[in-house]
Simulated assay, not measured.
Amino acid sequence: MERRSFGILTLAAAAATILPARAAEKAVSIVLVHGAFVDASGWRALYDILTKDGYEVLVVQNPTITLKDDVAVTQRVIAKAKNPVVLVGHSYGGSVITEAGNDPKVRSLVYLAAFAPDVGESVAKLAENPVQGEPQAPLLPPEDGFLIVDPAKFPTAFAADVDAATTAFMATAQVPWGLNAVGGVITQAAWKSKPSHFMIATEDHMVPPTAQRAMARRAGSWTQELRSSHAVMMSHPDEVAAFITAAGEAIR
Rank of each mutant, 00 (worst) to 15 (best):
R3L: 12
S29D: 06
I30P: 00
A36R: 00
D39E: 04
D39W: 01
W43M: 02
A45H: 11
L50K: 04
T51M: 02
K52N: 12
N62E: 07
N62I: 06
P63C: 07
P63T: 12
I65A: 12
L67W: 09
D69N: 14
V71P: 01
A72W: 04
V73R: 07
K82Q: 15
N83V: 10
N83W: 13
P84R: 08
P84G: 10
G89T: 08
G93P: 11
S95Y: 03
S95G: 10
I97L: 00
A100M: 01
A100V: 01
G101D: 00
R107W: 00
R107D: 00
R107C: 00
L112P: 05
A127H: 00
E128H: 04
P130V: 09
G133N: 11
P135C: 05
Q136I: 14
P141M: 04
D144C: 03
I148E: 02
D150E: 12
A157T: 03
D163I: 06
A164D: 10
A165T: 15
A165C: 06
A165I: 15
T167Q: 15
V175G: 01
G184L: 01
A190S: 01
F198S: 08
I200M: 04
I200G: 09
A201P: 03
A201Y: 03
P208R: 08
P209D: 03
Q212A: 08
A216G: 15
A216C: 14
R217Y: 13
L226M: 13
S228A: 15
H230P: 06
M233S: 07
H236W: 00
H236A: 07
E239K: 13
A241P: 05
A246H: 09
A250P: 06
